[in-house]
Write a protein that binds this DNA or RNA. Structure first.
Lengths: 332, 332
DNA sequence: TTGTAGGCGTTATCAG
DNA sequence: CTGATAACGCCTACAA
C-alpha cells in the first residue's frame, strides 16, 4: 500500500520544465501569467495521468491558509446542530472549504480546548455557538481568527452574530396559547444564561396579558430528568393550564413525562415549544412550535465569514436576526 | 488583529538555545533525549508565556501525518449519523485526532469527491459509510489510506467493517410481529443495494413462518414521498396486517402517512421498525424497534483504525458484527 | 546534553 | 512565456 504520491517536482521532471510552471498551471494561474495554451494543456494532462493531488499541508505552510472552517457546536448528535452542520457544510463546500467540528456540551472548558485545536490547525475561520462563561476564550479567539457567532450571541462580546429572532418567535408562539384562552402559562427553560434563552423568556413575559404573571421554571441542564419532573409537578399543582417550552429537548422530554402521568394534551394542559423536531409531527397531539430558519442562518453566517476571510470586514459589527416560522398544530 | 504567531525559533532565540532543543522538549521527547530538568522547565514556561502553539501544517508536512480522521457519512443532519459523528468525535479526541466530515447523500459521485478532499488533506485515516456503486473509489482509497467501513459493508471489497448484526436484529424484530399473531407482514426498504438493507431483508424473509410469503416494497430513495404512499396503499389493499420498516426514516414517514388516512395502529395495522429515533418514544402508539449499538460500533471502529494507523494491521480482514437491542413497545 | 543542517511540497519573487 | 530559488515552521539524523 501507499507508494509515494506524485509531487509538482515529479511532473516537472517528466515534462522537463520547472516546478514553478507546474504550480502556476495547476493552481489556475496560467492565464494571468501568460503561460502557453498547449503547455497548459500538456501539464494538466500529465498531472491527471500521474494522479497528482495537491499537498494541502505544504500549501498551507506556505500560504498560512488551511482551507478549513472550524465549527464549534453544543452537540453534533443533537439534530438541531446536525442540521446546522449540514447547511454549513453545503455552503462552505461551495467556497472550497472543509468543515471540522467539535462539540462543547455547553461547557466553557471543552469549548476552549476545541478552539485551541482549531487555532493550532490554523483554521481560516470559526463559527461558534457560544456557551456560558466563554467570553474570555472567545475574545481571545476573536482577536486571532475571523469569527462569527451563530444561534446565540456571546453576552459581553461585540462580534458578528447570526441567529433567529427569538423574541419575535416567542411572542408568536405564546400568542397561540393566549388566543386559545389559556390563563396561566408557565415557561420552562434551561438554567443557562444564554442570549437565545433570555430572548425567548423575554418574549414570553412581554406577550403575557396584563392580568397574567410570568411563571418561569429554570431546568438544570446537568440534571434534566429530575429537575424537569419537579418543575412539571409544581406547574400542575399550581394550576397552570399551559406550558411554553423554550427548546425542543425540554418539549420532548416533558411530553414523555406528561404521558407517564396520563396528563391529557391539550384538554388538560396546553403546550407549545420552540424548534420543530421530527417528533413533534409524530406525537399525539402534534405539537405547535416555532421553527428556526436554519438554512438561511447558515448561509448568512458563511457568507459573512467569507467576506471576513477576504479581509473585506464591514467596519461595524453585524447582528443579524432572522425570522422563523410559526407552525400551528394540535397541542393547544 | 493577528500579530505573527510565535515559532520554535522565537522561543529558541529568547532562551539562547537551539530550535532542536525546543522541539524536543515541546514534543515530549525531553526525557528520552536526556535533556536537563531545569532546561525542560524553562522551555515549557517560556513557551507558555509566549503563547506558543505548534503549527500543525508544518509538522504535518514534515511527518506526513495530519492528525485528522475523515468521516464520510450519508448525511450529518440525520440524527442517526449525527450520533455516529459524536461518538467518533469522542473516541478520536481521546487519541488526539480531529474529525473532518462530509455528507454523501448516498451518492457515489459526492462520496468520491469527499474522499478526494480527504486524501488531499492527507487524513491519517478514513471512516466511511459506503454507498451504492462506490466500489471503485473505495478500493482506490483503501490502497492509500487506512480505511474502515462502518454501518454497512461495501459489497465487492474485502475490508474491515464494523456494523450492527442486521440479520439478527431483523429476526428479533419480525418475531415480535409473528408472535403477536400477524399473518401477512410486508417489509419496506429503500431501493439501495446496501449490505445492511440486504441483511435486514434476509432476516425478515427467513424469520417468516413457512406458510407466509415475503412481501417486499422497495421505496425509491430519490422519491420517498410518493413511492412510499403507493407502497402503503398497495400493502393495505393486499390485506397486509403488519409492516416491517427497514430503517427509521421509512418508519417515521409512514407513520405520518398512515395517520393521514386514519389507519389505527396497532388495531388495524401493526408495525415495527429498525432504529430508535426520539420520535418513536413520543408517538402514539410508541413504536417497537431495534436499536443499533452506535457507541460500541464507533468505539470499535476507531480502535481498529488506531491500530491500522500504527501499522499494526491484523493480517486478516476484520468483519465485526455487534448485537443491537430489541425495544418492545406498543405498535404491534 | 545540546547544536547544525537538510528537507518535507508549495508558492512567490525575481530574473531571464 | 518560463526558470531558479528562497522561504514557510518543524522534525530528525548526525555531530560536537
Amino acid at each position: 500500500m501507499a507508494k509515494k504520491r506524485t509531487t509538482l517536482g515529479d511532473i516537472a521532471k517528466e515534462l522537463n520544465v520547472s516546478v514553478a510552471l507546474i504550480s502556476l498551471v495547476l493552481s489556475g494561474k496560467a492565464k494571468e501569467n501568460r503561460i502557453g495554451d498547449e503547455m497548459t494543456k500538456k501539464v494538466i494532462a500529465k498531472a491527471e495521468e500521474m494522479g497528482y493531488r495537491v499537498n494541502v499541508m505544504a500549501r498551507g505552510l506556505r500560504t498560512g491558509k488551511s482551507g478549513i472552517i472550524g465549527l464549534a457546536v453544543a452537540d453534533i448528535a443533537n439534530p438541531y446542530f446536525g442540521k446546522m452542520a449540514r447547511h454549513i457544510e453545503n455552503e462552505a463546500s461551495k467556497l472550497g472549504y472543509q468543515v471540522m467540528f467539535g462539540s462543547s456540551d455547553e461547557d466553557a472548558g471543552k469549548l476552549n480546548s476545541i478552539l485551541n485545536v482549531f487555532q493550532s490547525r490554523q483554521v481560516d475561520a470559526v463559527i461558534v455557538v457560544p456557551v456560558e462563561n466563554s467570553e474570555k476564550c472567545l475574545k481571545n479567539l476573536n482577536e486571532h481568527v475571523p469569527t462569527i457567532f451563530i444561534d446565540r450571541e456571546c453576552i459581553g462580546i461585540e462580534e458578528d452574530v447570526v441567529c433567529t429572532d427569538n423574541y419575535d418567535g416567542s411572542i408568536k408562539l405564546n400568542n397561540v396559547l393566549i388566543k386559545e384562552g389559556y390563563k396561566k402559562v408557565a415557561a420552562l427553560v434551561y438554567n443557562l444564561n444564554l442570549s437565545n434563552n433570555n430572548e425567548r423568556i423575554r418574549g414570553y413575559v412581554e406577550s403575557l396579558p396584563d392580568n397574567c404573571i410570568p411563571i418561569i421554571y429554570e431546568i438544570e441542564f446537568g440534571n434534566v430528568q429530575s429537575s424537569l419532573q419537579q418543575a412539571l409537578q409544581s406547574a400542575i399543582e399550581n394550576g397552570c393550564d399551559a406550558l411554553f417550552f423554550a427548546n425542543n429537548s425540554l418539549g420532548i422530554q416533558s411530553f414523555k413525562l406528561l404521558r407517564q402521568i396520563d396528563k391529557l394534551l391539550p384538554s388538560e394542559l396546553g403546550m407549545v415549544s420552540f424548534d420543530n423536531p421530527e417528533a413533534f409531527q409524530i406525537s399525539n397531539p402534534t405539537i405547535t412550535c416555532f421553527e428556526q430558519p436554519m438554512e438561511e442562518i447558515c448561509m448568512k453566517a458563511v457568507s459573512i465569514l467569507a467576506n471576513k476571510i477576504e479581509g473585506k470586514e464591514s467596519s461595524k459589527v453585524q447582528r443579524i436576526l432572522l425570522k422563523g416560522k410559526l407552525i400551528v398544530r394540535d397541542s393547544q
